[in-house]
Computed example of a mutant assay.
Amino acid sequence: MYEKILCISISTALFFMSHSALAVDGTINITGTVTAGACTPTTPTVTLDSINAEAITATLSDGLTNATPFTIVVNCPDNGQPILGIDFDPTNADTNTGNLEQTGTATGVEIALFDKNGANTSSPLWVNLNNGTGSTSITDAVEGDNNLNYSLALARTGASVAVEPGTIVSALSYTIRYN
């Protein structure tokens, strides 16, 4: 009997304690937005201008004049992603130079990538694919098309390396980054 009374007393005490724990002391107001979805990029195909093997005399330190511009257009359904950028996959990068390796029949040459979205578009910034230096960011993405401008140029794999004629073939994967 004593056990029943003790059990009922404990149950009653717990019942009243639980109600006092449910007292409302404040409210958290929550708001948010569901957007239409992520931004969608284009998949550009860049055809480099034909160039004589003897004309490819420059390495990056010499400056390059054979650049071919291209644009990645990123279409955003709304401005829910105000800052976006491109991160390039370094899988096909030359670990020594940071340029894009190519698998065509031409030898002694690789592809340099330049960011033309910088503040000084007359002097585009070289993108080192090994560490992403020079990667593009747009800080004021808009609803609709956002243009990320780049250029590609051929460069020797080394200052004393001969360039042999042939085809240039490569691919560069990228990921859109939302900040």
Rank of each mutant, 00 (worst) to 15 (best):
R177Q: 15
A155G: 10
L84K: 02
T33A: 15
G108Q: 15
D49W: 06
A36P: 05
T47H: 09
D78V: 07
W126M: 09
V169I: 15
P77D: 04
L14G: 00
W126K: 12
L14V: 00
P41N: 14
D140M: 11
T12P: 07
T103C: 02
A36C: 06
N79R: 11
G104E: 03
S20D: 03
V74H: 03
I86D: 01
G118T: 07
C39F: 04
A119Q: 11
T12Q: 05
G63F: 14
S151Y: 01
S135V: 02
F114Y: 14
A153T: 01
G108S: 04
N96E: 13
A36G: 05
A58R: 06
T136N: 10
A53R: 09
L129T: 00
S170R: 13
S137V: 11
T57Y: 04
A153V: 00
A155D: 08
G134D: 05
L113H: 02
G26E: 02
P82A: 08
L125H: 14
V142W: 12
I56P: 05
A171Y: 14
P69C: 13
I30A: 09
T139C: 05
G108N: 10
S11D: 00
T68N: 06
V169H: 13
T71R: 09
T43I: 12
T57D: 11
S9Q: 08
R156M: 09
N128I: 00
Y178S: 14
R156I: 01
T121D: 13
I72H: 12
L60Q: 10
T31D: 12
Y178T: 06
T27G: 02
G132W: 05
T157N: 12
I168R: 04
R156Q: 11
G98I: 01
L64H: 08
I10Q: 02
A67D: 06
T12Y: 06
I86P: 00
E3T: 05
D87N: 10
A53S: 15
L148I: 07
N75V: 12
N147D: 14
S151K: 04
T31I: 03
V74T: 03
T68M: 13
N52S: 13
A153K: 01
G158I: 03
L84Y: 05
T175K: 14
H19P: 00
T33R: 09
D25N: 14
L125D: 11
I5A: 13
P90D: 14
